[in-house]
């Protein structure tokens, strides 16, 4: 077998795979959040889009874990077919896990007329179901479509980072069962925790959704394509909600 190392061949090799630019170009970096002085927890998530295979295990596990009614979703992995003009292949798949960003400046909270929704000390944004009047003002105010009115409870509902599991020393359902290992959950304030390490390692490519709104999301992304950072300009899905409630 001839020595394949010949530079000419190497060139052809580069052009074969590596030639393809990743569609994530440089864009507004997410301010890597600082460590809090006090040793308190600050829960956050890193979504490594490169690892997502769009299997929706997260979506379904969330539904089962949190009894999310038919037709509503606390998380979903939006999947897109993207035409490529700058690559050797005509199109590519883009998978984007979405959930509540547990923003540090959450527009959903100040609007609540009864103070039913708030950010816990540990950074988790929650709804107090005993107080919520179901006015859906917060649903309107969330820029990420992360909230909805739960038709079983008639209250505002959203991702809680599975606070009930986290408080019990466990991982959120969607993280626990993430097949690609794309969802990394942890404590921003734990300097040598896995989350911190990954955030630091990826700091140059860290992004968040809709950074321009100043909501300061605490869900960070690696491999987030600018074209998907805000409202996606494209052909909408054919998905139609199924009659789930009367």
């Amino acid at each position: 077998m001839k020595d394949p190392g010949s530079s000419a061949a190497c060139a052809s090799r580069r052009s074969f795979l590596r030639g393809i630019p990743v569609i994530t170009a440089a864009a507004a970096l997410a301010p890597a959040p600082a460590l809090a002085a006090d040793g308190k927890h600050h829960w956050a998530m890193l979504v490594d889009a490169r690892k997502c295979i769009g299997c929706q295990a997260c979506t379904v596990s969330c539904i089962q874990e949190n009894a999310v009614p038919e037709g509503s979703f606390r998380t979903i992995v939006s999947t897109y077919s993207v035409k490529l003009t700058d690559a050797d292949q005509p199109a590519g798949t883009y998978q984007l896990p979405r959930l509540c960003n547990h923003c540090d400046q959450p527009p959903c909270i100040p609007v609540c007329p009864v103070g039913a929704t708030f950010k816990r000390e540990d950074g988790i944004v929650v709804v107090d179901g005993d107080r919520c009047v179901g006015c859906a003002y917060c649903v309107q105010a969330c820029p990420y479509d992360a909230r909805f009115i739960n038709h079983a409870t008639n209250k505002a509902d959203k991702c809680t980072f599975c606070a009930h599991r986290v408080d019990a020393g466990l991982l959120p359902a969607c993280v626990e069962t993430c097949v690609g290992g794309a969802r990394i959950f942890g404590d921003l304030n734990d300097p040598d925790g896995e989350l911190r390490r990954r955030l630091t390692a990826a700091k140059d490519e860290l992004k968040v959704l809709k950074p321009e709104l100043g909501t300061e999301p605490r869900v960070f992304y690696v491999g987030l394509d600018p074209r998907f950072q805000g409202k996606v300009e494209g052909q909408g899905t054919l998905w139609q909600p199924r009659k789930a409630h009367g």
Binding site: P21, V22, A49, R50, C52, G54, T79, A87, G92
Partner: peptide
């Protein structure tokens, strides 16, 4: 879904 543009290269 075998393709993933975030790891396109």
């Amino acid at each position: 879904n075998a393709d993933n543009r975030a790891a396109g290269e």
